[in-house]
């Protein structure tokens, strides 16, 4: 049996169906990422998994316990980081850790605790109030508090929101080492570089999983060519490329634009079009799709995923 097994999970708020039938299973020792647009149902799903919300329909077990009947038990076994900062801002770093330790009936000194978590980084700040920590440090403390009872399953809702690139790297190194020690991690993220680090990702859209697979398989399934366009005045270039009748999709991508075009047409025609439209000195290069290109494709054409649904 999986760490988490859910079958046809549903949740409605009045007339709004937030979760419209989600089924999936996670195995021990994997990082399972959930990505999707805002309002796709990601947070609601996680709140059901940690038993903060009761589903309107469907069934599921968490570490072998029933999400309807055994919610008390489940709450003692799962580590959860909600979307919003969940600690007590007017308690210090150390007090927060002690509070969660007591809450979960753990016999451990705070020294052991911090050694188990982000030891070196948190110790110098142990007397600082949690509310006064910077974004990256707050999230490290929140993860440490979610880990006090050594849970086998971690459920993290956008844990790296507002965190700078260096702290994000450190945070994910920690997640990977937790995974390697056998823990299962379910995590939502809006950073595609983090999606790439997951063992499997589910793409959530309107309360459904459209696609569940490893990042590499998702990328490998992408057969359509993608082109990177470089030029000056990128915004103007973007608008002009979108006017070409063979452009299927064009969007910004760092210092380039990424482009998909109708089958059977070549980018030479686009270059010609651009030249006539007042955008000379443009270079176009065929590239391999990455996970973000796949995301953009799914968001704009959710029906495309149906063929690869598992």
């Amino acid at each position: 049996m999986g760490t988490v097994t859910v079958e046809n999970l549903k949740k409605s708020f009045g007339k709004v169906q937030a979760i419209a039938g989600i089924s999936f299973e996670t195995v021990a020792g994997e990082i399972f990422g959930i990505i999707g647009a805002d309002g796709a149902g990601k947070s609601t799903l996680l709140q059901i998994l940690v038993t903060l919300l009761t589903p309107s329909g469907g069934s599921g077990t968490i570490l072998g316990y029933d999400i309807f009947k055994d919610y008390r038990k489940i709450r003692t076994l799962v580590g959860y980081m909600p979307e919003r900062f969940s600690l007590y801002p007017d308690l210090t770093v150390e007090e927060n850790l002690q509070f969660f330790t007591k809450l979960f009936n753990v016999r451990q000194s705070s020294e052991d605790l911090s050694l188990n978590t982000f030891a070196r980084q948190l110790i110098p700040f142990k007397n600082r109030r949690a509310g006064k920590l910077s974004g990256g440090m707050k999230q490290k403390l929140a993860l440490s508090c979610a880990l006090v009872h050594n849970p086998q399953l971690l459920i993290l809702d956008e844990p790296t929101r507002g965190v700078d690139p260096i702290s994000r790297t450190e945070f994910w190194q920690k997640l990977i080492s937790l995974r390697d020690s056998g823990k299962t991690i379910i995590v939502t993220t809006s950073y595609m570089d983090e999606a790439n680090l997951c063992d499997r990702i589910a793409f959530c859209d309107q309360g459904r999983f459209l696609l569940t697979d490893s990042p590499q398989s998702i990328i490998n399934k992408e057969k359509e060519p993608i082109y990177a366009i470089r030029g000056s005045n990128m915004f103007r270039l973007l608008q002009t490329v979108r006017q070409w009748e063979r452009t299927k999709a064009c969007y910004t991508f760092g210092d380039t634009l990424h482009l998909r075009i109708d089958k059977g047409y070549s980018t030479d025609e686009l270059l010609h079009f651009l030249k006539n439209s007042g955008c000379p000195d443009v270079s176009i290069q065929a590239i391999k799709a990455n996970i973000e290109d796949c995301f953009m494709q799914l968001v704009n054409n959710p029906e495309k995923a149906e063929t690869t649904i598992n």
Binding site: A37, D38, F295
Partner: peptide, 8 residues
């Protein structure tokens, strides 16, 4: 916390 499509 905004997804890649909405950010664009």
């Amino acid at each position: 916390g905004v997804d890649p499509a909405t950010r664009r």
